[in-house]
């Protein structure tokens, strides 16, 4: 149920932000009847409606009994995914400064070692520890 709720809220928030951004688009002299903002606004409205429908579905659906267990068990994989993402972002930031080969080898080594290490101090690399 939490996921349904998150989907609905995220869709509504995104729709509102996107509509505001579309509304702020400048009007061109070359613009047609629909305008540069016409289609984006229609998409934002449709997304907002879908978000509302999703929220309604989440409210109507009964909460499963074991919802709490799922959250507790699901934290570790998310942390590992975050670790992988951290390595990838560090790679993007570092490579322009140190070059492709120098950056690629440590990044790959960090990723491949991270699943095998035992020290909690290395958990920044996505280590399951």
């Amino acid at each position: 149920m939490a996921r349904e709720l998150v989907t609905g809220i995220a869709a509504l928030a995104l729709a509102a932000a996107y509509f505001a951004a579309a509304d702020a688009l400048p009007v061109s002299l070359l613009s047609d009847e629909v305008g540069a903002d016409g289609v984006p606004k229609a998409i934002a409205v449709a997304l907002g409606l879908c978000g509302l429908m999703q929220l309604a579905r989440a409210a109507l659906r009964r909460a499963p009994a074991a919802a709490g267990d799922e959250t507790a068990a699901g934290a570790k994989p998310h942390l590992r995914a975050l670790g992988l993402l951290g390595i990838a972002i560090a790679y993007v930031v570092v490579t322009p400064h140190v070059g492709y080969l120098v950056a690629t080898m440590p990044a790959s080594a960090c990723r491949s070692r991270s699943r095998r290490c035992r020290s909690p101090a290395r958990s920044c690399c996505g280590c399951p520890s």
């Binding site: 989907t7 869709a11 995104l14 996107y18 579309a22 688009l25 400048p26 061109s28 070359l30 613009s31 047609d32 629909v34 305008g35 540069a36 289609v39 984006p40 998409i43 449709a46 997304l47 879908c50 978000g51 999703q54």
Partner: peptide, 22 residues
């Protein structure tokens, strides 16, 4: 929702008719 997200991504860039950057 997924399809609309895709359409949103497709609107990024120069507008095909007026040339406004979106």
């Amino acid at each position: 929702i997924a399809a609309l997200l895709g359409l949103m991504i497709a609107t990024v860039g120069t507008d095909p008719v007026s040339g406004v950057s979106r």
